[in-house]
Amino acid sequence: MTDTPAHDHSETIDDDRRNFIHIATGAVAFGGAAMFAWAAIDQWNPAADTKAASALDVDISKIPLGGEIRVLIGGKPFFVRHRTQGEIAAAESVNVATLRDPQTDDERLHAKADGTLNRAILVTSGSCTHLGCVPVGPAQGNTGDFGGWYCPCHGSHYDTSGRIRKGPAPKNLPVPDYNYVSDSVINISL
């Protein structure tokens, strides 16, 4: 072996770049970095305690007729509304075909343990489907043009079933996962 300055070996170095062993090494190193990156990215996901705090029992027996309560689950607002007979009738009488996001009132209710519907209680998300503002409702004295909720940010009107009727919002107020623990308690989860 003779010692020659490395600069004269540029050709050999270029050959080397295509050498299998270098490609394999680079690939394995890259794979390892990607695995570490996965751990660094996965930690952005909700932590176990955050996930665990995503359900709530709500006592519906104390909601006044025609009123509503607002609850926070995992920081998100939800409306639980005790509808009057008139409001139920208004929600049911709408021609679904004319709606922007067609849904019947019954589709927006969850059944009790015995399979029947409790039409007096409506549970919806409390975030406007337009840009996430919290609409005002009976407690604020403004239920909009259709008796449900009114979003003051950009003027979306929801009816007594929480469906979008007027304004920029594209969708009805979503109905969360909930079930009747008993006749007077519902469990809402994200």
């Binding site: 751990a39 660094a40 996965d42 930690q43 996901n45 932590a47 176990a48 305690d49 955050t50």
Partner: peptide, 13 residues
Amino acid sequence: ERIMRDVPYGWLL
């Protein structure tokens, strides 16, 4: 300790 228990891969980091 929450990092060690609840955060995904928190113990590793």
